[in-house]
C-alpha cells in the first residue's frame, strides 16, 4: 500500500507544480492521474516497501544531495581545472568493486561517479564497475575504489540498502 501512496504523491506534486496552479480543477485531475499512474507503475518502481517506512533514509539522502552538490562536486571540479592547465593526465579504465546490492544504490553510485568530472562509469559486470579515470593513481581495484567511489558507496548503502 505504502508504495502506491508514495508514487502517487510524487506524481501529484510533479503534476501540480508543472500546471502551476492549485485550482480545484488542477487538484481534481491531479488526483485522478496520480491514482492511475501509481496503480500502473508502483510495482516496477518499488521492490522493497519496508524501506519506505524508514524516514531516516530520506534524511540521509537530503544530506548527501547537498554534500555532493557542494563539497564533492567543488573538489572534483577544482582537480580537473588544475589538470587542464598542467596537462598532468594519465587516463585509463580501472576496475572498481561494488558491495551495494539494490539497484537504486548501485544507480546512485554510478550516477555520482559519472557526474563528478574526471570519472565516468563505462560498464558494469559481476559486482565491478569499469571506470574511465582521468588520472589513474593506482590500477589496483581496492586502491581505486578508495579514491573514486568509497564515500558514494557508504552513503548509497545507508540510503537504499
Amino acid at each position: 500500500m505504502m508504495k502506491y501512496i508514495v508514487v502517487g504523491l510524487i506524481v501529484f506534486i510533479v503534476y501540480v507544480s508543472f500546471a502551476g496552479s492549485t485550482s480545484p480543477y488542477t487538484l481534481a485531475t491531479a488526483t485522478i492521474i496520480s491514482v492511475i499512474l501509481s496503480a500502473l507503475t508502483a510495482k516496477y518502481l518499488v521492490v522493497n516497501e519496508r524501506k519506505l517506512m524508514e524516514p531516516w533514509r530520506l534524511l540521509i539522502l537530503i544530506y548527501y544531495f547537498f554534500k555532493y552538490m557542494t563539497i564533492i562536486e567543488f573538489k572534483a571540479h577544482m582537480d580537473v581545472v588544475k589538470r587542464t592547465f598542467t596537462m598532468e593526465i594519465k587516463p585509463g579504465i580501472v576496475k572498481v568493486p561494488v558491495n551495494a546490492k539494490s539497484r537504486y544504490a548501485r544507480s546512485l553510485i554510478m550516477g555520482s561517479i559519472t557526474n563528478t568530472p574526471g570519472t565516468v562509469v563505462v560498464d558494469e559486470k559481476d559486482d565491478y564497475f569499469y571506470v574511465n579515470w582521468i588520472y589513474v593513481s593506482s590500477p589496483d581495484p581496492l586502491e581505486a575504489k578508495k579514491a573514486i567511489s568509497e564515500e558514494f558507496e557508504n552513503f548509497a548503502i545507508k540510503i537504499f540498502d
Binding site: I10, V14, Y15, F18, A19, T29, A30, I33, S34, L37
Partner: peptide, 8 residues
C-alpha cells in the same frame, strides 16, 4: 505526469 498536465 507532466504530459498528463499538458493534456488536461
Amino acid at each position: 505526469s507532466i504530459a498528463a498536465a499538458i493534456a488536461f
